[in-house]
Simulated assay, not measured.
Amino acid sequence: MTRVTDLDLSADAADLLEQLVDIESVSKNEQRIADAVQAALLPLTHLTVTRHGNTVVARTDLGHPERVVIAGHLDTVPVNDNLPAVRDQAEGTDVLRGLGTCDMKGGVAVMLKIAAGVPAPNRDLTFLFYESEEIETEFNGLFLLAQSDPDLLRADFAILMEPSDAVIEAGCQGTLRVDVIARGERAHSARSWKGVNAIHRAGEILDRLNAYQARMPVIDGLEYHEGLNAVFVNGGVAGNVLPDVCTVSINFRFAPDRSEAEAAAYVKELFAGFECEITDSAPGALPGLDRPAAKEFVEAVGGEVNPKFGWTDVARFSALGVPAVNFGPGDPMLAHKQEEFVPLEQVYRCEAVLRTWLGA
């Protein structure tokens, strides 16, 4: 039996973060860290703690009219010679380097400090420490909870503690992947006039991409920037054969005021005359900054809000009618990098903001 690693929830947030980082938790290997989180939370009498696979849920039940979910994933991408954690400096700022410091154990450390240190919050809270965010949806702890226990995700507002440089990033873009297929007719390259080169036909697909003008809608005062880009081109049979198929794989990052169906219809219209096969799709999330809890949280953070460029699990909450924002320590541009680190002052700032907002 694997010994449960002790986590000291009374420790400084930076020390707690170092403890978390030194528990290796690559996706699908989260049992040890989930055991540690569960063991640390179980003695806290103001919380009801349950386990769902390697996802740990802790809830208050104080009878408040408002409930807020605070969520963070426990897993990381694979180790890249970046464990154990190391204290260091970057541009004169104290940082912690190591796998998961930024994405997103800095946020998990803050969650644990709030769960332990705010026993009587002014809102009821649900803490979700979930598994397998970094891999396929079928393993994602939030996805699995939404299937098995959707009530655990229901709330008036949700905060996903993904790295956001300790400022609010509201909502998120949707994402759609589509294969646009150009067809031709095979022929020997020495007699090319006897066939139709599918790769040459695919040039029109690229021309349409080059002519694309990005839409930039303003939603809740935030300007989102759409993007449509080829990410793969696949075609060819042999060095002396005209190919009869060429596929351009395209990723469309669309603003959250479009539905998945609207995004798919837009892409298919843009590439009319070519076959389009949708290979992957996920909805965006509207900011929802008009909700009372969101407004008060924005005020607590200082009023600065940015749109989220990219897709995060806030979309899972949005699908349940729960407005959600990203708010956590760390630069999202450092996520998954070998040199990943988190500024410790951002860890402390996120903890302080949440304590203030929750009335501690």
Results as ranks from 00 to 15, higher is better:
residue 246 C to F: 00
residue 37 V to K: 01
residue 24 E to K: 12
residue 246 C to K: 05
residue 219 I to M: 04
residue 287 P to R: 00
residue 358 L to R: 01
residue 299 E to C: 09
residue 203 G to Y: 05
residue 285 A to E: 06
residue 33 I to L: 14
residue 317 F to Y: 10
residue 213 Q to K: 14
residue 289 L to V: 02
residue 40 A to Y: 05
residue 98 G to Q: 07
residue 98 G to K: 07
residue 322 V to T: 05
residue 360 A to Y: 12
residue 353 V to T: 13
residue 75 D to K: 09
residue 264 A to C: 08
residue 330 G to Q: 01
residue 283 P to D: 00
residue 261 A to E: 01
residue 42 L to R: 14
residue 173 Q to Y: 10
residue 311 W to N: 06
residue 102 C to E: 12
residue 175 T to N: 02
residue 161 M to Y: 03
residue 108 V to F: 04
residue 301 V to S: 01
residue 278 I to D: 00
residue 145 L to E: 00
residue 144 L to S: 02
residue 55 T to Y: 06
residue 85 A to E: 08
residue 167 V to M: 06
residue 89 Q to V: 14
residue 310 G to W: 10
residue 123 R to H: 15
residue 280 D to Y: 14
residue 228 L to S: 03
residue 287 P to K: 00
residue 272 A to T: 13
residue 125 L to W: 08
residue 170 A to S: 03
residue 12 D to C: 13
residue 134 E to L: 07
residue 127 F to A: 10
residue 59 R to P: 15
residue 264 A to T: 09
residue 73 H to R: 09
residue 342 V to S: 06
residue 145 L to Y: 07
residue 200 H to M: 14
residue 71 A to I: 02
residue 112 L to E: 01
residue 81 D to M: 11
residue 294 A to N: 08
residue 230 A to S: 11
residue 173 Q to H: 14
residue 237 V to Y: 03
residue 352 A to Q: 15
residue 243 P to Y: 00
residue 224 Y to T: 01
residue 189 S to M: 07
residue 232 F to Y: 10
residue 230 A to N: 05
residue 260 E to A: 10
residue 184 G to E: 08
residue 120 A to P: 07
residue 227 G to I: 04
residue 114 I to D: 02
residue 113 K to D: 06
residue 158 A to I: 04
residue 128 L to W: 05
residue 31 Q to I: 13
residue 238 A to M: 06
residue 119 P to Y: 04
residue 103 D to P: 05
residue 349 R to W: 12
residue 71 A to V: 04
residue 247 T to Q: 10
residue 338 Q to W: 12
residue 34 A to W: 00
residue 13 A to D: 01
residue 174 G to Y: 11
residue 321 G to N: 02
residue 269 E to Y: 04
residue 189 S to L: 10
residue 187 A to N: 01
residue 31 Q to Y: 11
residue 169 E to P: 07
residue 99 L to Y: 02
residue 247 T to G: 03
residue 62 L to A: 07
residue 276 C to D: 00
